[in-house]
Nucleic acid binder design. Sequence first.
DNA 1: GTCTATAAGGGGATAGAC
DNA 2: GTCTATCCCCTTATAGAC
Lengths: 202, 202
Amino acid sequence: MRFKTKGMEPLTTEQKIIKAASKLFTQKGYAATKTREIAEEADINLALLNYYFGSKERLYKEVVKDKLWMLLEVMIPILSDEKVSLEEKVMTIAENYTQLLLEHEELPIFILNEWTVNEDLFVDITRDARLFAKPVIEKQLKENGMKVSVPDFIANLLSLIMFSFVAKPLIVSSGLVEEGEFANFVNRRKGKIWEWMTKINQ
Amino acid sequence: MRFKTKGMEPLTTEQKIIKAASKLFTQKGYAATKTREIAEEADINLALLNYYFGSKERLYKEVVKDKLWMLLEVMIPILSDEKVSLEEKVMTIAENYTQLLLEHEELPIFILNEWTVNEDLFVDITRDARLFAKPVIEKQLKENGMKVSVPDFIANLLSLIMFSFVAKPLIVSSGLVEEGEFANFVNRRKGKIWEWMTKINQ
DNA sequence: GTCTATAAGGGGATAGAC
DNA sequence: GTCTATCCCCTTATAGAC
């Protein structure tokens, strides 16, 4: 989207298609989603899908790209910024992710599954993107007296924040946390992440 | 399978189908896997798939059930056993999961994704299964002076062990850990889980 | 840009011979 | 139990009218 639309203009046909495709692909995956369903959900004629996007596959790539950056932009720029302290980084990422994922619960499992099943697609998308700025984090770990490696630090951070969302069906149907309590559960965890990270990484 | 076969008998047709289906479904998901591919991979005639399993869907359910228990049986019986100390529980689960997942890397993302996309299927499978024995763990947490809740304890444990596998594509393509170093990475983490769990949960 | 109609082929399933 | 041949619906994609 080149120009952000402000206010109440109705969606263009293109936007309606992307929105519907986004919803259905993330819910059901590529193969299980039919172009007819997308057209119906978007309330447009089936032929328009091909008119605007050429093929189901190209439409899918647009959606995946969008969703992947949605997930990464919460983390990458902050981690690489030297002017942001380690504590601030952890707190901000925990806050932003928890909020984002509460609004888009299906996002991480969709991306991680697609990345596993369809690796080639992601090679294109992430090519040339420096995802993690190792040196910056390494320096800040030392300054904070943390002896952990950068990969372990990142793995621990993302684990503690994101895993609850990825494993939500297991956590809920096992009765560990009630569906209605899930938001409280992850919000409480969010508040402890920095404490946990300092303890773990000594 | 009622009777375990010892030694070198060739696989029965039924076993060949399950094996092939297992491989393809976990790699590509339900909708993307064609019955014709399963037949070819299993080296059997397409009609035999329906002869033995009735339909693609029934075959799929068999596979999902197998895989789900593979994932759960590593954890459920141990967690519920009162005679196993908390430390032993954590160490054993970390050890067993790391080994299992190194051999079946696609297992957790497959199950967690299917559980999200296709919840109904799992309602049947997990019905009446008491997945976690909360009281046992609660008692042991107190005895170990840990103030954490049972859901947080389980979430932390599984996060720290499993998330690396679920997020492997991200971890590897970002350059955080080299593909060839991945086994070492998770094995090193495995050795620290108990230490981390005691620190976090004070 | 949007519609209807249809082409072209894929995919799950089964009848019936062996 | 296993095979061949085939049914028939569903899906993606496009031609061509408006």
